[in-house]
Simulated scan of single mutants.
Amino acid sequence: MPQEYIDILGGLDSTHFANFRNLMRQGFRDVRKHAERIIMIVELMQKDSKLPCFTLGDLTSANLRDRFQLALSQSQCDEFVDKLILNSAGSAFTRLYDTFQYYSQGVL
């Protein structure tokens, strides 16, 4: 999450950032409700696929299942999403990617 997004929301302690966090939590909880359907679609798509996103074979859907964190309770899920948000806030990887885009595409 680029620092610019955080700034637009008014900083980490702002009402808008708190609203963003709540929406992210709710969105993650909602998508988890459909996790098995999503995983099943991926399993169907990965069978005999030559697409690079499926090169791990059966591990593709297993890794996807892990990302849904299905074993977590709702409060643990909310904590997980909060960690994701805070770890991504001002991430060095985001800055590196922005720098790459600037030098390769002239986009910042």
Rank of each mutant, 00 (worst) to 15 (best):
M1Q: 11
I8K: 12
I8G: 00
L9F: 07
L9E: 03
G10M: 03
G11H: 01
L12W: 01
S14Q: 01
S14W: 04
H16G: 00
F17S: 10
N19E: 09
N19C: 03
F20G: 01
R21L: 09
N22R: 05
L23A: 12
R29D: 07
D30C: 05
D30G: 06
D30A: 11
V31A: 05
V31N: 06
R32D: 06
R32E: 03
H34K: 10
H34A: 10
A35I: 04
E36H: 06
I38K: 08
I38N: 04
M40H: 11
I41T: 05
I41W: 04
V42G: 03
L44Q: 14
L44G: 15
L44C: 12
K47L: 14
S49V: 12
S49A: 15
K50C: 08
L51G: 14
F54R: 14
T55R: 15
L56S: 14
L56W: 10
L56C: 14
D58I: 14
D58V: 11
L59G: 14
L59V: 04
T60W: 01
T60G: 03
T60Y: 07
S61W: 10
A62K: 15
A62I: 14
A62C: 13
N63Y: 07
L64W: 05
R65M: 04
D66E: 07
F68T: 11
F68W: 08
Q69V: 04
L70G: 12
L70Q: 11
S73D: 10
S75E: 12
C77R: 05
C77Q: 06
C77K: 05
E79L: 10
F80Q: 04
D82A: 11
D82V: 05
D82R: 02
D82M: 13
L86I: 13
A89F: 09
G90R: 12
G90W: 03
F93I: 03
T94P: 00
T94I: 14
T94V: 11
R95A: 15
L96F: 07
Y97H: 00
D98C: 02
Q101L: 08
Q101K: 13
Y102V: 00
Y102H: 02
Y102A: 00
Y102K: 00
S104V: 09
S104I: 08
Q105E: 06
Q105G: 02
